[in-house]
């Protein structure tokens, strides 16, 4: 793939005293994609993110945003990025508009320029009606929207989201996902951390699974699932004596990766279900096998996660201190 590189991380390490929070990771984020850092708490996602937004200096290795080093050219990088922190980083006593005005001044916008951009953003996140109320009166979802508006204020090329939907109700989550997709269509590059598998699956073009400070695997959700060996079609046959015959025929089909005999019938790993399913049914018909039941399982991101880390994401990681 020949695409512009937005972020280039090379052999990044970050240690705290004896604990290695990030241990020699390298990856690239392409311009215009939604890139996810997926992992349990304490895996090193937030440390990686904080390095990219210039808040942490790497112990060794480097990170560059559009070619600018995050340590040596921190100010240039800061002009290119927007950041939405994990905590609700909201000043209870300021109104939504005042939050944005403060940031406008910190990005050195003129009053008129800031006012124009603030109006646009408030419309975008649908906070117009509440813009002049103190933030302590906001709901969780509204605070998150304000957070995102704050992240977008500098008109960034890359938006960093740290656990964007942590602790939100289902409706607000879907809302935030909608925003993120919309931002992508506007040409923004989005980098987000998450420990929700469904979020990574639904939202990210590509993702890196991080555990114990290392990248375990990286790719698009579909690639990662296919890498496990593809979808599984399970056949339950009425007459098991014909199983071997069917197995022999199916083994040579192009869309099928592997076939395994089970006590009820066959487990068939397929590359593309669209091509494989007709072929399977066709062969079964020709051989006169009566199919009692077909089950089709697509590997979920959970399976990918377990395959690469050896445990489910919900299982807790040993406490490692700073994240």
């Amino acid at each position: 793939m020949d695409r512009a590189i937005a972020i280039d991380v090379k052999q990044l390490c970050k240690s705290y005293e004896r604990h290695k929070a990030v241990d020699d990771i390298s990856f690239q984020v392409y311009a215009g994609e939604i890139f996810g850092l997926l992992g349990p708490n304490g895996a090193g996602k937030s440390t990686t993110l904080r390095t990219l937004i210039t808040l942490l200096h790497p112990t060794s290795g480097s990170a560059a945003v559009f070619g600018h080093d995050t340590v040596r050219e921190a100010d240039t990088v800061r002009m290119l990025i927007g950041y939405v922190p994990q905590e609700r980083a909201i000043d209870r006593f300021l109104t939504g508009r005042e939050h944005l005005e403060l940031l406008g001044a910190l990005y050195h916008l003129s009053k008129t320029e800031a006012a124009k951009r603030i109006d646009e953003l408030l419309t975008l996140v649908e906070l117009n009606a509440h813009a002049d109320r103190p933030a302590k009166t906001y709901s969780g979802g509204m605070k998150r929207k304000l957070d995102i508006a704050c992240g977008l204020l500098p008109n960034p090329k890359i938006l960093f989201l740290d656990e964007p939907t942590l602790g939100l109700d289902v409706q607000s989550r879907l809302r935030i996902w909608e925003y993120v997709r919309m931002l992508k269509t506007r040409g923004l590059t989005v980098v987000m951390t998450t420990n929700y598998l469904d979020e990574a699956d639904q939202l990210c073009d590509r993702l890196a699974i991080i555990d114990g400070g290392k990248i375990k695997t990286l790719g698009s959700p579909a690639e990662l699932k296919i890498a496990l060996g593809g979808d599984i079609v399970s056949l339950t046959l009425k007459e098991t004596d014909r199983t071997a015959g069917l197995e022999a025929v199916l083994k040579d089909q192009p869309a099928i990766t592997s076939v395994r005999t089970t006590d009820k019938g066959l487990d068939i790993r397929v590359e593309s279900p669209e091509k494989a399913l007709p072929a399977i049914l066709d062969s079964a018909n020709r051989l006169g096998c009566n199919i009692e039941f077909i089950q089709y399982n697509r590997p979920r991101l959970d399976d990918v996660f377990i395959a690469h880390t050896g445990r489910a994401i919900t299982e807790s990681v040993p406490e490692t201190g700073s994240t």
Binding site: R50, I53, T54, L55, D75, R78, M79, I81, Y83, P85, Q86, E87, R88, A89, I90, D91, L103, L106, Y107, H108, C150, P154
Partner: peptide, 13 residues
Amino acid sequence: ENGFLERLMSTPI
């Protein structure tokens, strides 16, 4: 503690 400082520090100030 609430991350506001981090937000300020991620700006080019």
